[in-house]
Amino acid sequence: MLINTVLVFLQNILPIFVVFSLLFAQQDARYKSSSLESSQSSSQSRNQSSNQSSNKEKNNIYYLPIIYLLKTTGIGLIIVFLLSYFMPMLSQLFSGTGLEILFSILFSLIYCFIVISFLLNQTSSHKKSQDKMLLDQQTLTQQKTLVSLAILLLVLCVHGSYFSLYVMSLTIQNTALETLYSGIVVGVIIGTGICLSIAILLYFILVSLAKKLRSQIVCYFLLLFGVGQLIQGLQLLEQVDIISSTAHLWSTNYLIAEDSELGYFLTILFGYEATPSAMELIVYLSAIIVPILIAKINTSKQNSTASFMKGTS
């Protein structure tokens, strides 16, 4: 029971730790790149007013306050409990496809919010170089806070509810208290230790990347995580025949088995699939390419507007 609890915990709770790690890394990357830019600009110009505005800007860059995170986690845990309690009833909706439909919607929402976060970060990195209007930065910071909290809440609800269901199934069984203790409590402690180690390691790897690329790489990592979530939603719809699935295109199980430790981690990190179908491949590639194209179009539009404004002034 102990080993199984650890495995179920890792499979369901590791995505929550990974998304925490990615969001913190994204925030930290923005802060460090901003402080680097402001220090460069202050040494060059030594202008007092620009220093004041850059200090205010730095304050706006920390968009994930601890108090908000705690509140979101609290709300998330309540939703997790309610979701796992009503899961048997939900599963009977729509001719037994209720859970698949609900969870595929939630997975798609995670992806949508991650895309919004990706586009906001691309816009903010561009805007910073064009104009430093404080009001714009504050609105952007608020938007980033809301989107990040929405991502955390959704990931917590979706993945947490499966683990909560496992714990509830164990407690319902007529098992001795000691066995339950060793099975659940010790399993959760070991699982938390492993998840925490992976999340901290991932965070430090991401924040120790090259300074110029750090912010971009973290954004792309988060986008890939979102695409992985979308693919999980798609597989749920294929499972109940709402979306027609096709034959597997290839199998890379001989390279990295999906049920191996590395396979688990890669599946969570960017939706690694050893045996993808044509539909999954098309959705996966489109889900990466479309947001990148939108970001590029936005940037080129802003560039042309800025050059036009320069010309008129």
């Binding site: 199934s169 319902i172 069984q173 597989q235 199980n253 999906e258 699939e273 045996t275 179908s277």
Partner: peptide, 12 residues
């Protein structure tokens, strides 16, 4: 009387 989860990596 308990919940179970049908799981298959090869079948997705």
């Amino acid at each position: 009387d308990s919940v179970e989860e049908f799981d298959s990596f090869s079948l997705n």
